[in-house]
């Protein structure tokens, strides 16, 4: 019962997400919209967490396996990848480093700014 309920609730959110995605002309994938919708229904209490936990945990824990079929597509793509191999690697390595540094730094800076503010506020509160 719990499994079938979970499957239904998650599918219902995916369907709603796909519908919204279609309405906005495919601007965002339906799966991502479905994720936002499920977060909203969970937070508002429309969906109870225990309805979906078993299925959701199964799906997220085994996600890696689900993209094996797509990954095997590398067999047909190997030609175009190997032709551009080093450029491809360079783009991936450099972009990954840049993303890591920028997001980490930004969070660090914002956190420190807020801490300064809140510690000042805290002091005046206590005094």
């Amino acid at each position: 019962m719990r499994v079938i309920t979970g499957i239904f609730v998650i599918l219902a959110h995916l369907v709603a997400g796909n519908l919204l995605s279609w309405l906005i002309g495919g601007f965002m994938p339906g799966s991502v919209i479905g994720m936002v919708l499920l977060y909203i229904t969970l937070r508002t209490g429309i969906v109870k967490e225990h309805w979906i936990r078993v299925v959701a945990v199964f799906l997220t824990d085994n996600m890696t396996m689900f993209f094996m079929p797509a990954f095997i597509g590398i067999m047909d793509l190997w030609g175009i990848i190997s032709m551009n191999f080093w450029a491809w690697i360079a783009v991936l390595v450099l972009s990954t480093i840049v993303v890591m540094i920028s997001s980490g730094y930004v969070h660090d800076i914002v956190e420190r700014l807020l801490q300064k503010k809140s510690s000042q506020g805290g002091r005046s509160c206590r005094s």
Binding site: L14, G17, M35, V36, Y39, V57, T60
Partner: peptide
Amino acid sequence: FIDFLLGPSVVSLALLLY
């Protein structure tokens, strides 16, 4: 069928956020 499960698993990431 396995490929299909990708969509539901993305939706399920909401639980992780929750």
